[in-house]
Design a protein around this nucleic acid. Structure first.
Lengths: 242, 242
DNA sequence: ATCATACACGAACATGCGTTCCATGTCAAG
DNA sequence: CTTGACATGGAACGCATGTTCGTGTATGAT
């Protein structure tokens, strides 16, 4: 066989280029091949192109051939790098203006049968949505996420007020882990509630976010549906509330 | 004097161009003059350039001459348009990937002497900050904004929990209007609290956000300092809370 | 009427900038 | 040592794209 020296994996120059692409971000347009060369100490445009082709193959960037400055970084791919690399790329990932548009699936309230986003998340046009900075989220895939506007004060005990927007991730009963804050649908009580979820011997403990309030217990026999896991709560405060 | 027909103000073509710049946003790089022409029904590159120069003069975009696709929209300027124009620009403003980086000024807690951002908001480097989508904010200037991380559960009654991040706008006592949710510093009680603020005959009423809780009254004689107005509250919920 | 100005075209020109091809250097496998 | 994938340069080549200029047409102002 053959086993080349460094080959696979990002080399110093890949990092430099990626880093420069990030720094260049605030210019409003991508750099040209020559500009990349100057900044990364590569004298030949063909070499820069060589690396760009690799970055494209690895999936870190996308290019539109024959178009000046026709390239863009792929934030998702970059996010994967996480903190693997130091400063240069770190800063990059954060510099990448990346907003995630989360579909507003509807409203949720004590008695409302909690809506679930279009089963397959297929495609939602210019519907209403909430834009969140990727840097605010737990850096996971943006799919599976949906938002709900809270209607009514029934979730006061979960520290969630009327008008708040909760960002949720689709999750099944099985996937739910102790300590997750989830939206629970209790068919028998015809009630939806947001609580911290804990499995105990033969019951479920639903703990309110407000530490001054007591948990409620649900016997294991009672049906219980986890509709989603709360990832974030956003409260916009208007000028003249109340 | 002279008063030309339409002149001053954005015309249909300006709007179209601005709109196209927005739509083109997700490509990752700006369009070329010719591309703009095609999409907006302008056959001559010089005419497109003509409009771009105007948009630049009006401050809607910035250009880097002699650089392919060297232009970018100025979100702040665009935000001013507000809902003045219909769909096209509306969508634009929202499509503009624009994150606002709000400096994290520090922590706030019942007994902590609430920190205030670097007096003049001069310049803050890569300090910690929170990135918010402009579309989530009340579309005002991003300056004057700062964020605080809440420490402790002393503001539970304001529906704000330990770890929450509150986005605030600097505001003086005089500017405060009834109904604003503000951070109030009570020197005599050595206490900082978040409450809805109301002026009454000879006292101030500080109303908790949680409707089930009673307001507290501060006699007008007692010193009271409004440190900021709460614009938004963000709660990130970790997987294994509690 | 006459002129200045805003609005529009389209062609020509001069770079900007991506692409391609050829030559060279390096290191590991055979 | 030879071979070959990998890494770099450098210089052309040629389309991509911004800029400039000559022209033409409304509309107001004088």
């Amino acid at each position: 066989m053959m086993m080349v020296r460094k080959s696979k994996g990002l080399g110093e120059r890949h990092i430099k280029i990626l880093g420069f692409l990030g720094e260049h971000q605030d210019k409003g347009y991508p750099p040209s091949i020559r500009e990349i060369g100057e900044q990364t100490g590569i004298s030949s445009t063909s070499v820069v192109n060589y690396y760009l082709e690799q970055l494209e193959k690895w999936g870190y960037i996308e290019r539109d051939r024959h178009i000046s400055r026709g390239m863009r970084v792929v934030p998702e791919r970059l996010a994967e790098l996480g903190s693997t690399f130091a400063a240069p790329v770190q800063a990059l990932a954060q510099a990448i203006n990346e907003l995630i548009r989360i579909p507003l699936a509807g409203r949720i309230g004590a008695s409302l049968p909690m809506p679930v986003p279009a089963s397959d998340f297929s495609y939602y046009g210019p519907e209403e949505g909430v834009e969140i900075a990727r840097s605010l989220l737990p850096a996971k895939k943006a799919e599976e996420l949906f938002a709900l506007e809270v209607s009514g004060t029934s979730m006061i005990d979960a520290m969630v007020n009327d008008g708040d927007i909760v960002i949720m991730r689709q999750i099944s009963n099985a996937e739910t882990k102790d300590g997750d804050m989830v939206a629970v649908w209790l068919p028998e009580r015809d009630e939806t509630t947001l609580k911290y979820f804990y499995k105990e011997k033969n019951r479920y403990r639903l703990q309110p976010a407000n530490p001054t309030m007591e948990p409620i217990y649900i016997p294991k026999e009672e049906p219980l549906e986890i509709r989603g896991k709360v990832v974030m709560v956003i409260r916009k405060i208007a000028s003249g509330a109340m």
